[in-house]
Amino acid sequence: MMNKTNHNSPRLNLANYVFRPEFSSLVILIAMVVITAVLQENFFTIKSIVRNINAFAPLILLAMGAGVVIISGGLDLSAGAALSLFTCVLTTVMKRGEPITGVYAIIITFAVAIMVGVVNGIGIGYLRIPPVIVTFATSYIWLGIGLFLRPTPGGESVAWFRMFYNPAMVDGIHPAIEQFGRVIPPALILVLIACFIWFIVSKTKTGRYIYAVGSNNDNAYASGINTAKVQLLACVINSIFIFLAALFFVGQNQSGDARMGDPLTLRAIASAIVGGIALTGGRGSVYFALVGALILSFVNKIIFFANISYAYQTLVSGLIVIVAIAAPVAYNLHSSKED
């Protein structure tokens, strides 16, 4: 009987958590929050927290998407370009003063997001082209379409789209929603939606197979898994997360820009890795990509508040990122020796 309980209990006790490779990124994050709180006096006010969440949310969403793709054995270099494209599509479909166009825009852009994921997925999964090549190529396709729709930043947006940024800015909104939005900003809700989507997926076959395929594509195939389909689904999930980020961006800026997402691509991938997701696939937790994105975001904040001369800021942030990436690796090496 003793034996049976031992076999069946999922590992939930503290010791097992401490020995998980992701643990070190959590420690780094806590350290960074403490440092920031010391440097920034009003850090723990609601206003400051909401501002931080708004600033971090797009990277968090893209990092979680990158995490899903990397775990499935892929890599997405087109995430930033896809984000830009979605903002362009949204602001092209919407007409100022016609609220209903906002609904059309969301539906059409969602369809575009699914297609973006499917195209990447076909290249990676079915055509078996190296993911770096596929998504490098598609990033230019997304950029091209984006520039076609919106050669210069701009475009129109319906007023209620500010819902996705700050409900207080929408005229005539119910006061209760307005109050709610002050405490729980829409950006946080978008991140929670992404977390919920992954929570559901991770409980299904698709979630299990994403890990199996990323860990060993051939053996997963030999076990009867349709590996191409799994990789395609991973790309689609990623694309949906990027779509959520696009809603936030257009809500915030009321305009589209075919190039605005570019700097986020590599930051999203770096976030996933800082969060302990292995670039080789199959290992890591999508939720910890969120932690990784927070770490990368806090790096910039700390440098800003630490009064480091502007000339050194980029250099210092690079060094901190290296430490953040190296720490989980060193931790992994150490704990695997203990085994």
């Binding site: 890990y211 860990s215 060993n216």
Partner: peptide
């Protein structure tokens, strides 16, 4: 040649 997946 085994058909197992190492990370599961």
């Amino acid at each position: 040649n085994l058909s197992l997946v190492a990370d599961l």
